[in-house]
Amino acid sequence: MRQKITMNFQKKASVEERFQQFLSNCVARGLSEKTMRGYKNHLHCLSKYLDIAIPLSALTKSEVEMAVAHMRKEELSPNSICSYLRTFKVFLSWCKEEGYADITIPAYKPRETIKETYSDEELKKLLEKPATNCSFCEYRSWIVIQFLLNSGCRASTIRNIQNRDVDLESRQVLFRHTKTRKVQVIPLCSTLVAHLKDYMRIRKGEPEDYLFCNEHGEMLTENALRLAIVRYNQQRGV
């Protein structure tokens, strides 16, 4: 006799299985690859303290709270705990909308920390123009530092700026790649415009080429940009 088809999966689906469905939904909604990687990484880290193999229907608020207590006992960074739980809350909200579960967990409030900022002396060192015989990478990093101080944009935004996005005449730059996915137009100060003009004369390239590229004219990876800034700071004793 053939086995009867039932809806048991609805009750037996594990937390991990539902999370995979959640990720598929995120893809369908057009979330960025970086966001998706973050979600996957956060669940992986959370799974060390929370059993994600159990059915979602068996998950309780107290089990999540026990996981938080365990993470705190292991002295995980409060910001890391907050990130993991923020992702899990988004997942549980989706589960509630789909009718899979009705669990609400409170927001975890990490202790506020004051981030150390650059001193006036350090900024002076960073903004000092490199020697004329410097490498292209050092010269580009100098421009990047100025650009970041002028706009305060995210690393992913600055990596995606193309030559055509910079309007030197109007003293503005177009951000096509933003967290909100909305195109933004940002004004540029006169000093940065002058330095960008010199930089773009050296950088050359096609309108669609990336403005802040590597020495071969290719798009900088996120890690390459981070290391370039770190190296630039260290070279100046900052």
Score class of each variant (00 low, 15 high):
Tyr39Ala: 11
His70Leu: 12
Ile54Leu: 11
Tyr49Trp: 02
Leu149Thr: 08
Arg72Lys: 13
Met36His: 09
Pro130Val: 07
Ser62Asp: 09
Ser62Met: 11
Thr113Met: 07
Val68His: 01
Tyr49Ile: 00
Met36Ser: 14
Ile54Ala: 03
Lys129Tyr: 04
Lys89Trp: 09
Met36Ala: 15
Cys82Lys: 04
Ile105Gln: 04
Cys134His: 00
Glu63Ile: 00
Lys40Cys: 15
Glu112Met: 11
Leu76Lys: 09
Thr117Lys: 05
Asn79Thr: 05
Pro130Phe: 03
Leu76His: 08
Glu112Gly: 10
Ser80Pro: 00
Ala53Gly: 15
Ser141Gln: 08
Tyr108Asp: 02
His70Arg: 14
Asp120Arg: 10
Arg140Thr: 14
Phe136Thr: 10
Lys34Val: 07
Glu112Asn: 03
Lys73Asn: 12
Ile81Gln: 08
Ile103Glu: 10
Ile114His: 04
Glu116Arg: 13
Val64Phe: 10
Tyr49Lys: 03
Glu138Lys: 03
Trp142Ala: 12
Leu43Gly: 01
Leu149Gly: 11
Trp94Thr: 06
Val90Tyr: 06
Met36Thr: 06
Lys109Tyr: 02
Pro78Met: 10
Lys129His: 06
Thr132Ser: 15
Cys45Pro: 00
Ser77Lys: 11
Tyr84Pro: 02
Glu65Gly: 13
Val64Arg: 00
Glu74Ile: 01
Leu56Lys: 01
Ala69Gln: 14
Thr60Met: 11
Met71Arg: 08
